[in-house]
Design a protein around this nucleic acid. Structure first.
Lengths: 210, 210
DNA sequence: ACCTGAACACCGTTCAAGT
DNA sequence: ACCTGAACACCGTTCAAGT
């Protein structure tokens, strides 16, 4: 009667990807190996290859699955607020799943979910009255800033102590003087503030069509 | 008499890092292994550990070494043009050395060269008359955008064919309609255009001190 | 101070074979 | 259709030992 989700013997692509994401969230992407995954799922390493082509494809599937957590855009909501929610959602997703960031540097985010989620945004901008060129230019600035800001925040919250010579008052006096401002700059409120300003600058109210 | 740079028998930290960077540029960061490196340098894998703590530290050193290629800022040059050159230089460095991008997602860029190069920028902004808060806020937007734009461009130029379902006219009609704009958006000229506009918005001429 | 050899505990993946 | 076993060619790193 009982059937817990990680039921041994039940094996399919979704279960594999889900287990891989759990390991990645807990111990980092490096801890995800076909052998470790098989152990966790009560199967043989080779059993996984029946459902997944290879490890690269597994990572692609992991990234795509992660993106499903993004809340859908409300096409009838106020577009400016929806935009803000959207990019904040991406930022939070990257912070929650650092493996997503790592995966992104290897391979483009072009899975079905990435496409679906992107389409929602461009539909919103389209309906709001933006010209295609403005919509894409605005998106690129917002998206690239969001990715960069997420990586920056991740790197500052990384649990590793600096291995190389750090920030000293005499080697870099000006930077040292500003050191607390950098800490503030990696906060979520700073991100939202800058995001809002970027939206206002790059996607100002379009001429109302008709 | 002859003494080619990768001379077998000559081994030190710099030579190891340099060899590692060559492999990374040619075949990607994944191809860099202690064993492969040792083979290339005519040494035993364990010999490397005399100069380098472990592989993580090697990657840190690689990132730091890469940053040395950034041209120094001219403190007496026009600050706006210097700013532009600086961030374009970072962008180009990431494109030329994708391993740098990959390394950045693992560990913060806090080596001595990163600090040195950062200090140059903040000194420039300081001398130009910017308040610390404005300098940091401006830097963060420009830097994060630059990192994001570099990753975006790298992901679009990656030599792998998409493994997952791609962009089809019926699944994502609006995105599909815009597809050529995305290609343009990943060009260097687009980057520079957006960078200029961001500089103008976030670091406008400061009140001249005295 | 600098380097080696052998060993441990891992990887991803192929291939032929089993049910 | 789904899974296993054995094998291949790799990893990073420790440890004791050599010069």
């Amino acid at each position: 009667m009982r059937k817990p989700p990680p039921d041994p013997g039940v094996l399919d692509a979704d279960a594999i990807v889900e287990a891989a994401l759990t390991i990645a969230d807990d111990e980092g992407l490096d801890a995800v190996s076909m052998r470790r995954l098989a152990l966790e799922l009560g199967a043989t390493p080779m059993a996984l290859y029946y459902y997944v082509e290879n490890k690269d494809q597994l990572v692609d599937l992991m990234a795509d699955q992660s993106l499903q957590q993004l809340a859908d855009i409300d096409q009838d909501g106020p577009w400016r607020a929806e935009l803000e929610r959207y990019f904040l959602g991406i930022h939070q997703l990257f912070i929650a799943h650092p493996a997503l960031a790592e995966a992104m540097t290897h391979r483009p985010l072009q899975g079905p979910t990435a496409i679906r989620v992107g389409e929602q945004l461009f539909r919103l901008l389209d309906r709001a009255g933006f010209a295609d060129t403005d919509a894409v230019a605005g998106f690129l600035v917002l998206f690239n800033y969001t990715i960069g800001a997420s990586l920056y925040r991740l790197s500052r919250s990384s649990p590793v102590e600096p291995r190389l010579a750090g920030l000293t008052p005499d080697a870099a006096p000006v930077t040292y003087r500003m050191r607390e401002l950098f800490a503030e700059g990696s906060s979520e409120t700073h991100f939202v503030t800058a995001l809002r300003r970027l939206i206002a600058d790059w996607l100002p109210d379009p001429p109302t069509t008709v």
